[in-house]
Nucleic acid binder design. Sequence first.
DNA 1: GCCACTATATTCACAGACCTAACAAACTCG
DNA 2: CGAGTTTGTTAGGTCTGTGAATATAGTGGC
Lengths: 402, 402
Amino acid sequence: MQQVSDASRSPGYDPAPTNSRALIVDSIRSAGTVSRVELTQITGLTAPSVTTLVRRLIDDGLVDEAGRGSSTGGKPRTMLRIRAAARYVVGVHLSADSLTYVLVDYAGAVVARWRRAGPGEDSDPEQVVERIATETTELIERSGIDPSLVLGLGFVCPGPLIRNRGVTSAPPSMTHWVGFPIHRRLEERLGLPALLENDATAAAAGTRLTTSHDVSVMAALFMSEGIGSGLRLNGNVYQGAHGNAGEVGHICVQIGGPQCWCGSTGCLEAIAGPATVVAKARAAGLDLGSPRRTGVAAFAAIARLALTGDSRAEAILRDSASWLALGAQTITNMYDVQLLVLTGPAFAVAGTIYLPIIQERILSSAFGRAVDTEVVLDERGHDAAAIGAALMMLRSERAISA
Amino acid sequence: MQQVSDASRSPGYDPAPTNSRALIVDSIRSAGTVSRVELTQITGLTAPSVTTLVRRLIDDGLVDEAGRGSSTGGKPRTMLRIRAAARYVVGVHLSADSLTYVLVDYAGAVVARWRRAGPGEDSDPEQVVERIATETTELIERSGIDPSLVLGLGFVCPGPLIRNRGVTSAPPSMTHWVGFPIHRRLEERLGLPALLENDATAAAAGTRLTTSHDVSVMAALFMSEGIGSGLRLNGNVYQGAHGNAGEVGHICVQIGGPQCWCGSTGCLEAIAGPATVVAKARAAGLDLGSPRRTGVAAFAAIARLALTGDSRAEAILRDSASWLALGAQTITNMYDVQLLVLTGPAFAVAGTIYLPIIQERILSSAFGRAVDTEVVLDERGHDAAAIGAALMMLRSERAISA
DNA sequence: GCCACTATATTCACAGACCTAACAAACTCG
DNA sequence: CGAGTTTGTTAGGTCTGTGAATATAGTGGC
């Protein structure tokens, strides 16, 4: 193949697989089980091409036949499915207060997850690399799979990143990480290819689509310690020129608003992000458990209070939600998506409070109504970023090689 | 070819040409003159492939050899260039107060332009189709080119659109146009393929890149009667699920802000758009010429006052600019572009007032500084949308057929 | 002015992807 | 049980793009 130069692919939105083999694998994976005829419809390839490609995938042990479909008046369809045990990938999501690991099989299912306390604010990058390497190895060992089947590791952390140099740059609570090429270090340490992405973008890749209609353009609104978003087009994430697209946390929603760590003022994250919500709750005298509890853990405590009837906690969260609704409106206006998914650790606990408020604003904004944008909550919010990191690795070129 | 199904291409961001022939044509067009060796580098194709493809393009009369480059120690390069007179396309930009036509040759250069008064607010769609058809025919005739060389017509108007149905929907001052399939009617009337796009998106396609470094991800901030933006990735515009991406005019920049025609409140366009600027200027007692002067014409009058030293006019425009800077910041945060171009009729006159204010905000926002986003003014702002419409047609499949 | 040397472009034979057309297989229904 | 229907495969051909070898048109040494 090789029709499009590397140079012209640089923005990283990875224009749909030029590769028919990858297209078939993707189609089977997202469908669960399909027949060859259905694949011809989904992919636009001809029946003979599907036959050939599928045969090779079966020969390579990546796809299995899975029984017969029911007849519709003729020969019944032979169903195909991804051979889940063919390959595995690891996804790792690092933030200050938690470190999440997932092991994902070739079908895209999570076969193991592990959530650990984060390394904290003052962590030494080299020690974190060492810890992640050790724990990744342990995860693989305990799962009992053949380590040689692990394709690679997707690593995500809060953005922004400098993607071309593959280096984290100025994350909120980790300034001493600036310039540290963590994924390269992980590659060296583990002997596996590693991919670096920001958490929100990965979350967009990790969201399972459970809507009725076809969704080819969707976005994730991601809230962890910060607020971000990711855009997915036909299964490929859009990363922008420097890998920092979707920084909805740092759009200005209030002229003269509060100072943000990013240097700007009035940022959505500074006004309504988890850190601010926690600070407000503490100021209001809410009991969030240990005073050392910070970040998403403290935020979750507020959400639990609100859900058990604390009206002060609820008011604080509803205020935050009204600002996030504004961010959601910006996402739909800028990206024109069919679906917006709320995801990330913060939404995992507080999502039910945020969802209706955000839905209401999207539906009442004119363009939202005109184009019928759906807003849903991701039930896997806590692991979304790690899963997304794994799935991005799963969709890489090497994942389909024999 | 046909590797990727129509279904999977639906979002309309048209992943870089799968077609090598189109890739070569695009590369030559954007380079001006290039040699075959350079094409191998730009396109990633091998030398023999370039030879073959270029020979066919020359045989088909789409490309010419254009002398020798200087030798670098061996055989000098044979330079290639697009045969400008091979084909032509027409671009039409309709807004309430102006109707702009451009005739663009196969090299992408504007060979004729024509600006006429717009049809006004109460125009009858069928009459406008008739008028555009007549004037398009006249434009082609007066230019003296062979009408059979005209490939098609790109038509743009203020968004939002319903792209799949190819129908304009609820533009600000043209509600009675809702549901009118103008490009289909133009196709019937002119016997030429026509393409419908919103003005801001087309403007992104029409911006000439004159920056030093390679720009693969850029956006246009477009101001005409309304405010919009367009995103361009490797020469392909991103249109979103329904063709309404980039609606930066309707992001909320002020909670509880003024009512917008779109139904929402606090929209950038309602606060700082040309209509509001004109209303403020009239309220301040500024003389904008005829009281019947509206839209961009009235806005231009204010800009001229400001540029000739009227401090009230300047203050009003600077206030508008500070809000647009906010919109620009949102664009760079969401899209992560390398370049942001201010374009459109409103910037054509007032751009020099807006540019420094917008630049200042982009450069002072943390991510802007980190990633070095450039902000420039398009010198062809007035025609950008029409030119972009033409160029989009020029990049269509049929434009490279023999 | 002739001879290397070098960079540019082309020719030729071949591999692979994908298509059309014809065919085989496996079920339903009368 | 055989016609009809749907699913999947085989066979043959086209087209794109490749690698290896070759032709072309300059430069610079002597």
